[in-house]
Design a protein around this nucleic acid. Structure first.
Lengths: 153, 153
DNA sequence: GGTTTGGCCGGTAATTCGCCGGTATATTCG
DNA sequence: CGAATATACCGGCGAATTACCGGCCAAACC
């Protein structure tokens, strides 16, 4: 399950999380390795599932989604398929974490306006009671989930 | 501030969020455009700040971070610099949203173990009262923040 | 001590990138 | 209304990068 990673692997991961499109030749330069060696390592990380993919980060506000919100959902039932179906349909739901505690789900949603957010929350409220917080600002903007520059301590 | 995007731009954004390393020639094929035209559009999206970068997605569990948690932080003071400094130092803090409501900050943190998480929460508790929930599972895994396939409605 | 294994290097062919001018359509302005 | 400009697209070219290959070296293993 867990993959053993040496310090060079962590360097590679940090670089690729900072710039997922850096050429292998430049990446090799940064981690003091040849292009072919670094390619081999990246391919191995991909094959082992440590790197699951590469994504472009989008500035949601610039793209027209002015409102970002955290919605906590207290979901009384045990049938989760309808909620999962909604997640697949509503691309405004950016993230969905199922957690311990009183609020079973923590969602991050993007909306173009307050009425838009209201509709989204209403849809979610069909599943259970919701607690919605508007996001003022997001620190570590658009780093996405991941690690930046450290090994597990 | 807001950039106007036509349907082709949305297609490009969706593709790049799904696979940020797709070659421009293949990307052009998928959105029915020539490689040079699609390159021009992507460069424009980058220059306008709609695309803020490209990141590799890492499977945290495979990388040794077995525990994912949501920590809500009630921060009584108004001096936010110390917290922001901590965010920059502790790369286990994956995401930090400042929100309305009783809990000023909502953080997503990764830890290698429960003792590790305990230490992180203790550090955060130095700023205010915390509410921690362990993440069972993450739906929409590794799509990262962003949009998938829809235009703002 | 010989063999095997794993990781790295360098070279080469194929692909892709970055940049160029040229063209067609839409827009603006005289 | 017609001409000039602007915008977006296309194709092609050289440079850079990628993918793939065999060979090398050191550590591990028998």
């Amino acid at each position: 399950m867990t993959v053993t990673l040496d310090p060079t692997d962590w360097l590679i991961l940090a670089e690729l999380q900072r710039d997922g499109r850096v050429p292998f030749t430049e990446l090799g330069r940064r981690v003091s390795l040849s292009a072919s060696a670094v390619t081999e390592r990246v391919r191995r990380l991909e094959a082992e599932g440590v790197i699951t993919g590469y994504r472009a980060d989008v500035d949601l506000a610039k793209a027209g989604f002015a409102v970002l919100a955290v919605v906590r959902l207290k979901y009384p039932g045990s049938r989760h398929e309808p909620l999962h179906r909604l997640l697949g349909e509503r691309s405004e739901i950016l993230e969905c974490l199922r957690t311990t505690g009183d609020d079973c789900y923590t969602l991050k949603v993007a909306a173009t306006s307050m009425p838009h957010l209201e509709r989204l929350v209403d849809e979610l409220a069909g599943f259970g009671s919701t607690t919605t917080s508007i996001v003022y600002s997001q620190t570590l903007p658009y780093r996405g989930p991941g690690l930046r520059n450290a090994t597990p301590s």
